[in-house]
Design a protein around this nucleic acid. Structure first.
Length: 563
RNA sequence: UGGGGAGUCGUCCAGUGGCAGGACGGCAGACUCUGGAUCUGCUUACAGGGGUUCGAAUCCUCUCUCCCCAGCCA
């Protein structure tokens, strides 16, 4: 439903569809499809396409099919089919019973090929792969016609049948469209439409020994499904004449192909070839490594489907190549998580604090707000006692200019607890490292407010040492250091960030997290948004940092270091 | 050098003959029991040259730059 608050986005594709609707083209229907090849996991670039295709169907009260483009058994696997379905669903889209496979159409497609042969628009060619390449010509020189181009219809049909039955070896023959070897568009120089590939298919088993090529399978699949607008990426723009040619030759239902620019995201790679390389060469733990731009990686990282959909809306749809800044994706997830996640205190790099004037063996419970953005999320109790942990970074023995946190003689507020003042610093005799702080607290400031109205510059988070739960926390940074990996070296792997994962083993979190389940999301106050990783077990919780909070102090400090 | 596309703030997207706008980023400030969130302000762009027009990002023209195509991958 379109409302003033959430207008549907406008872009050249939607404009075109509105125009078609106005002209009653396609009987005023809108029917799109999302056509992944099951040869890898879906990534954020696919999310753009999914949101576009399913989003348009929803907006124009049409339908969107999920269709697996499974015409190459050498690369495709059921594992990928499974993950793709899961990811599309998780993103929030459904296809009812319209789950289709190009392989379901193999018989029909074969028939279309035979029809083409009968119309003398296709022929069986004996040229080898190398010879075909040679005959194709180059970008600037026309190609030459295959010597097998003028075989009789009967011979072609007979040979094509033999190909189908597996009577001919792989690569020995192809079925080619008879178009124009002199075309400036290389796709039109008698493209191969069927190849012999005596490989088993994940759905059709050993039934087929020949498999159709993309250009042939795709347009007819769209046609069979009565797709109205076949939306694909820019690199298929010069395949459109071929798409149109096939459908025109056989005079069948003819959808309209529309091309848009694929997504590029800074500091990552979105090509299946590169992603599969990262997985196979074990630069990441798998397709769902939280540093991967895959849907499953983002999910494990703690991204919400809402934030990804919102991102896809914000980046827009156009025809020019572009690289979206990762900062926008991060903005989208912060925006969502800020509104919806529970706040909790967690100390990632613990520094022991002893409140010297707080009685030993005493403990009390203090009230904490679960989400200041949403009072409906209520409050919780946080235990306080004599020995606490605070963040190492929240103490400086020699505070730089503008550092408001704890330092010797200075007073800060412990969130929801008391004002404390640092009275002593204990150091390791050998290394000089600060190992413990001695502080005094002001009992009158219980809950965090001072009756005398005195102010503190800073509020820091903390946990009670004896109550806290120890946990592992994994901090992630960009997987690539440069905005465009390989942009300078031409090898994307040289730009991998050696510090993209930092695992902190002894962090302390509030006891209220004891029952947190895999996938649960929290804001660790002042640190960022985190979610429970599936690696968590009864041995201990593991958290992934989804994204940091905006950190003004970090930026000030960075600027100070530069000067 | 064949064919197909594309050039608007740092980034992404609008604007289709009438004051170039939004978002992200950045910078500055207000507020704050998260140096969070929120709010306010600022910043910067029509690839270039000619032309048409009262008026051009928009129309015409020439030029330049970038992307894609020579898989029996999709």
């Amino acid at each position: 439903m379109s409302t003033p608050e959430t207008p549907y986005p406008s872009d050249f594709i939607r404009e075109l569809i509105r125009e078609d609707l106005k002209n009653r083209k396609f009987d005023s229907r809108v029917h799109t499809r999302f056509p992944p090849e099951p040869n890898g996991y879906l990534h954020i670039g696919h999310a753009k396409s999914i949101c576009l295709n399913f989003g348009i169907a929803e907006e124009f009260k049409g339908l969107c099919n999920l269709r697996f483009d499974d015409t190459n058994p050498a690369k495709e696997e059921v594992e990928y089919v499974k993950s793709i379905k899961e990811d599309v669903k998780w993103l929030g889209f459904g296809w009812d019973n319209r789950e289709y496979y190009a392989s379901d159409y193999f018989e029909k497609l074969y028939g279309y090929a035979v029809d083409l042969i009968k119309k003398e628009k296709a022929y069986v060619c004996d040229l080898s792969a190398d010879e075909i390449r040679e005959y194709r010509g180059t970008l600037t020189e026309p190609g030459r016609e295959s010597p097998y181009r003028s075989r009789s219809v009967e011979e072609n049909i007979e040979l094509f049948e033999k190909m189908r039955k597996g009577e001919l070896p792989d690569g020995s023959r192809t079925l080619r469209a008879k178009i124009d070897m002199k075309s400036g568009n290389i796709n039109m120089r008698d493209p191969v439409i069927y190849r012999i590939m005596r490989a088993d298919h994940h759905r059709t088993g050993d039934k087929w020994r020949i498999y159709p090529m993309y250009d042939f399978a795709h347009c007819f699949s769209d046609s069979i499904e009565k797709i109205t607008h076949s939306i694909c990426t820019l690199e298929f723009e010069d395949h459109r004449p071929l798409y149109d040619w096939f459908l025109e030759q056989l005079n069948v239902y003819h959808p309209q192909q529309i091309e848009f620019a694929r997504l590029n995201l800074s500091h990552t790679v979105l090509s299946k070839r590169k992603l599969i390389q990262l997985v196979q060469e074990k630069h990441v733990s798998g397709w769902d490594d939280p540093r991967m731009p895959t849907i499953s990686g983002l999910r494990r990282r703690g991204y919400t489907p809402e934030s990804i959909r919102n991102f896809c809306e914000r980046i827009g749809v156009a025809k020019r190549d572009s690289t979206v800044d990762m900062a926008l994706l991060e903005f989208c997830i912060r925006e969502d998580l800020n509104k919806h996640t529970q706040r909790v205190m967690a100390v990632l790099r613990p520094l022991k604090v002893v409140i010297v004037n707080y009685p030993e063996n005493q403990a009390e419970e203090l009230d904490a707000v679960n989400n200041p953005e949403d009072p409906g999320m209520g409050t919780r109790k946080v235990p306080f006692s004599r020995v606490l942990y605070i963040e190492k970074d929240d103490f400086r023995e020699d505070p730089p200019k503008g550092f408001f946190r704890l330092s010797p003689g200075k007073e800060v507020r412990l969130r929801y607890a008391y004002y404390i003042t640092c009275t002593g610093v204990v150091k390791d005799k050998n290394t000089g490292e600060v190992t413990e702080l001695q502080c005094t607290y002001d009992p009158a400031t219980r809950g965090g407010d001072s009756p005398d109205g005195r102010k503190v510059r800073s509020t820091i988070h903390w946990v009670s040492a004896s109550h806290a739960i120890e946990a592992e926390v994994r901090l992630y940074d960009h997987f690539f250091t440069r905005p465009v990996p390989g942009g300078e070296s031409n090898d994307f792997k040289t730009d991998m960030n050696p510090k993209s994962l930092e695992s902190l083993k002894s962090c302390f979190v509030e006891p209220c997290l004891a029952n947190a389940k895999s996938g649960d999301r929290f804001q660790f106050e002042r640190m960022g948004y985190f979610c429970v990783d599936p690696d968590s077990s009864d041995k201990g919780l593991v958290f992934n940092r989804t994204v940091t909070l905006r950190d003004t102090w970090a930026r000030i400090e960075k600027a100070q270091k530069k000067n």
